[in-house]
Write a protein that binds this DNA or RNA. Sequence first.
DNA 1: GAGTAAAATATTAGCGTAAACGATTTCTCA
DNA 2: TGAGAAATCGTTTACGCTAATATTTTACTC
Lengths: 334, 334
Amino acid sequence: MKKITLKAIAERAGVSVATVSRALNGRGPMDEATREQILRIAEELGYAPDMAARSLVLRRTENIGFLIHALQSLSPHTFYGEILTAVERELRRHRYHLHFATVEDETLPPLIKENRVDGLILAGCDLPPVLIRSLKERRIPLVLLDNHLLGIDSVFTDNVNGAFQATAHLIRLGHRRVAFIAETLDNLSFQERFEGYRQALEAHGLPFDPELVAEGERGFEGGFVAMNSLLDRARPTAVVAANDPTAASAMRAIRARGLRIPEDIAVVGFDDDPLAVHTDPPLTTMRVFRSKMAVLAVARLLDLIQNPEQPALHIRIETQLIVRQSCGSPLTPS
Amino acid sequence: MKKITLKAIAERAGVSVATVSRALNGRGPMDEATREQILRIAEELGYAPDMAARSLVLRRTENIGFLIHALQSLSPHTFYGEILTAVERELRRHRYHLHFATVEDETLPPLIKENRVDGLILAGCDLPPVLIRSLKERRIPLVLLDNHLLGIDSVFTDNVNGAFQATAHLIRLGHRRVAFIAETLDNLSFQERFEGYRQALEAHGLPFDPELVAEGERGFEGGFVAMNSLLDRARPTAVVAANDPTAASAMRAIRARGLRIPEDIAVVGFDDDPLAVHTDPPLTTMRVFRSKMAVLAVARLLDLIQNPEQPALHIRIETQLIVRQSCGSPLTPS
DNA sequence: GAGTAAAATATTAGCGTAAACGATTTCTCA
DNA sequence: TGAGAAATCGTTTACGCTAATATTTTACTC
């Protein structure tokens, strides 16, 4: 089966390749009859332009790179999986394609230098800023997703305000000793959520007690570790977890000590991960709009590709409190 | 910043572009001194071959397509996320790149006709066989991952034997009324697991009772629906779930009726999804080797690209029983 | 040191496409 | 009808690279 090229169509239609190219791309005035005939033949032969030839001459690939830190791939929550598929869906709608790549350090991934992509979506706040800066210097259009950095376009979740609301929810339910736990604070999102937690305490006139803050370790059981070390030294009546896996993990630590949720300790998570509905009791959490982030990031990136010289835009998306049973419902306070 | 091409290097080194190309690709005999000089200059200038030009002439892209049914992206379990990142890691090791695409129906995804990839990994058994066949007819090297079909290379999990073992585990613990639930049986993997369940019953001399089989619906709450409808008409002492999310969901249905796990009903899942450790009690399940599948599929695909005319290979990977607390431990039988 | 073999490098062609430019035909209107 | 404008289409070039072929340089033999 030989490759179907412009030439093949040209021969069949008895015209030159340029005419075929013009007909297919709709450039310049043309005789409607011949255009239709060419389109018909192209359809018949199942023609599709060779991407290599096309991008060689057009200097663009219609590929977008989706970059994520390799760390995240290990992370078992589906956060970036959902974002990835949402980004792909949106790109497909615009006839773009998605290159998926992970980076482990600060070295430039090969797809950049090799001109494999027209732009980049950098997902997550674990990508080293040094890498981001050096990508920016190469003047590749790029958008940060779920991350932000001065001078670079970004679409991200309002973590500070989200954590504020989560904490305020607990305070409204009457809690006075509210703890904060995270797998790690070596992560911008979690730091911001921590900040939101502190602001909420302050706004409600509650003292900040460092004893009520615990860090665990990276990985799925980070929340378990954090919660245990916290319970070893203090006894909060409520816990704000930096994300849902951490919360779920912490819930296991709480129950392992014979404490009840939410009666003894209320728990609120963050992200509205699918697992939130499966914990026992189902987890109250802050919903994060992954697919909305994806759509906005793609739109921004495509705009940036068309028109590169623009001031950086920072799009912040608010979160939404999803009340389940892990804090006691507002109707039946714990 | 102008693009760094072979020509630029050639001019700097005072040789022709062909020599530079040969030096970089290591083809043909060369003066060691000039080769080293060329390599040095290329390094200095940060040269990387333009992928479009390269693949235009070489007729290959060093891109692999990773295809998945759009349905799966909605599915919140991390199964294919882990596989995806494992595939990407393995491809990167071989200096290949990954194109991520989802399909919603049987139409050929554009990346095929446009020559964007050298080969395909088709992940999951939800991809329409019609589509798979038509891809095969285009003679694109491809490997099925977590799926199998006669005449097409595949790497997949031994679902039948896995479910057999899961069921046998329950029977060994003394259970006689063992149920089977799935989100849907409209899926090869789940059908095979169902088959393994039946075979285990038969092998242990237990009758097959259709009353003890329930299907739910696609989506995260499928297990909840299935378990409820099952409990409405029957009362098993143990349940085999087609996968972990289904099991987790079913556990909620069981507890919602005030029944205890594993004392009243034992539960075993499938996949060893990360969430298995977070359920209460932690879920006994069959471990599936995602990253092993990924590595094998990539190896097979790259081999197939180099040497297309080979008989199809079918690589089946066994599962492993992971005993947690949802069945009662073998040491403390329920 | 001439003749030849071998090694090293240069020249050329071509991959499939789009765009610039040029050539031809058709149309418009005085 | 004829001149110019407009429409239509063909030719050429360029994109950056590799492979095939041609040419030069070097090395070697007697």
